[in-house]
Simulated assay, not measured.
Amino acid sequence: MSSTPGGLPPQTALHTQRATFTEAYAVLPRATMSDITASRLPGWAETRLWVLARPMTGFAETFSQYLMEVQPGGGSDAPEPDPQAQGVLFVTHGAITLTIEGTAHDLTAGGYAYLPPGCAWTLKATEKALFHWIRKAYVPAPGIAPPAPLVTTDQATAPKVMPDTDGAWATTLFTDPADLAHDMAVTIVTLQPGGVIPFEETHVMEHGLFVLEGKAVYRLNRDWVEVEAGDFMWLRAFCPQACYTGGPGPFRYLLYKDINRHMPLGPIV
């Protein structure tokens, strides 16, 4: 898993980094997640976070993504203020106890949870914990009930190898993408050394990509960008994207995308 954020570069450090914000994508290198860029939330004790993505008109509009850091004993008894919001938690460091509708689940690195809208949940860190919290307003579909809560792990979920890749490219699917109850998917993409995404994907889905392990060179719109563990990429709809791995080990990233719904023909209300 990626190194933890925080701290502050020394006065002797060069300011030159890879942070980029364009009309089609943004790259937040791990160095941007310092002490001075951390935020806090009402109702969360012993907690700070880095806001990696938030809905922005004219950019990516469907989701927010937080990188949460919770000290031992910290957490929240009322974490989600929006009854329309669904969420995904993915733990990268430490340990938490997640209680969903009265049932407690102990999660460590690799732990994954889907939290449907209106779900009652609480969270406490049993040791210093770092986890992603991805939030999206649920879009109902006629005749389809929202999904049930789900708790699993990266380790317990077998990756699905992409066709004609000889195992070089695989995706860990925590939920079934054909299940129309879900209007978002959070997966893990794994590329083995030498693996590539060999064409420029160009599609309507918005993306948040947090690099969990390894390094690669990513094609984003018109640019090639080097990324490594701890970096975050934020892609608006139709941003061309491809990559090839650049390290001796696997390249893995946590991926968000919106799925399975009609395109809104006006402002979402």
Rank of each mutant, 00 (worst) to 15 (best):
L8G: 00
P9F: 07
T12P: 02
T12N: 07
A13I: 02
A24N: 15
Y25I: 03
R30F: 13
A31T: 09
A38W: 05
W44R: 00
V51F: 01
R54K: 14
F63N: 08
P83C: 15
P83E: 12
G87Y: 02
F90P: 04
H93I: 02
A95P: 02
G102K: 14
G102F: 11
T103K: 15
D106A: 07
C119F: 08
E127W: 04
A129K: 05
F131R: 01
K136A: 11
K136V: 10
P140D: 09
P142C: 11
P147Y: 13
T153K: 11
T153F: 08
T153S: 13
Q155W: 05
P159A: 07
T171N: 08
D179H: 14
D183C: 14
M184L: 14
V186D: 03
T187P: 02
V189I: 08
P193E: 09
I197M: 09
P198Q: 12
F199C: 04
H203T: 11
E206H: 10
G208M: 11
A216I: 05
L220Y: 08
E226H: 13
G230S: 14
P240H: 10
A242Y: 07
A242V: 08
Y244K: 11
T245D: 04
G246K: 06
R261Y: 12
I268L: 15
